[in-house]
């Protein structure tokens, strides 16, 4: 049951990310692209955040193939909604990025901070091929740097907020059991 719930959550992330990206473009005039908040929203690399969210939430419960298929589905939907006349760019990029995540974080119990450490790398790998394929705009280094920093900042903020309850209500670690104290643990003091 838990497996299916996590699978559903992962698929929901993969589905809603392209929807949010296209909706952002639709409400662009209302958001005001020139304001600080408007620019901040556009600088966020949403696919990278979505991949990280998938890894952070579902790595312990799902098989890597599930995550990889969800990442491929995310890329396929992004390709389908894009204005480009060719498929595959986002699909391949997202699949490879997810593969990289799973390779760099082989443990089933992935800690969110591990994922945060590789966010800049993921944002760079996601932004650079797009910029090269679609033609490098003027000042692309600053654009890319801003995107990486914004995504990393937002990821750190999200992880910190998610970890806060564990910081405030930290449980005591269980007493370790060694061969030396096995008798003392079994017999009363």
């Amino acid at each position: 049951m838990t497996h299916w719930l996590f699978l559903l959550a992962t698929l929901l992330i993969a589905y809603l990310t392209p929807c949010v990206m296209t909706s952002l473009h639709a409400v662009e005039p209302s958001l005001g692209g020139q304001t600080f908040v408007g620019r901040f929203i556009y600088d966020v690399n949403l696919p990278v955040l979505a991949l990280g969210l998938m890894v952070a939430t579902s790595r312990a419960r799902l098989h890597p193939t599930n995550l990889l298929a969800a990442a491929a589905g995310l890329g396929l939907l992004l390709d389908g909604l894009s204005a480009s006349s060719q498929l595959g760019q986002e699909t391949i990029t997202c699949t490879l990025l997810m593969l990289l995540c799973l390779t760099l974080l082989p443990a089933r119990e992935t800690r969110p901070w591990h994922w945060l450490a590789i966010v800049p790398l993921l944002a760079l790998m996601h932004g650079l091929p797009q910029a090269v394929l679609q033609g490098l705009p003027a000042g692309w280094q600053q654009l890319l740097l801003r995107e990486i920093l914004t995504t990393t900042f937002l990821a750190a903020l999200a992880i910190t907020i998610l970890r806060l309850p564990q910081v405030w209500f930290e449980t005591k670690p269980a007493a370790s059991l060694h061969l030396e104290n096995r008798w003392s643990r079994l017999t009363p003091e």
């Binding site: 396929l76 909604l81 498929l87």
Partner: peptide
């Protein structure tokens, strides 16, 4: 993973008609 990667790599080779069909389906799904 190997199957998914191969499938993703073959996507750019799809004919234009199939790509347009998928784009129409993707719009409906989203």
């Amino acid at each position: 993973p190997v199957v998914i990667l191969i499938a993703a790599t073959l996507l750019p080779a799809l004919p234009t008609g199939l790509v347009n069909s998928w784009k129409s389906v993707a719009r409906d799904i989203a």
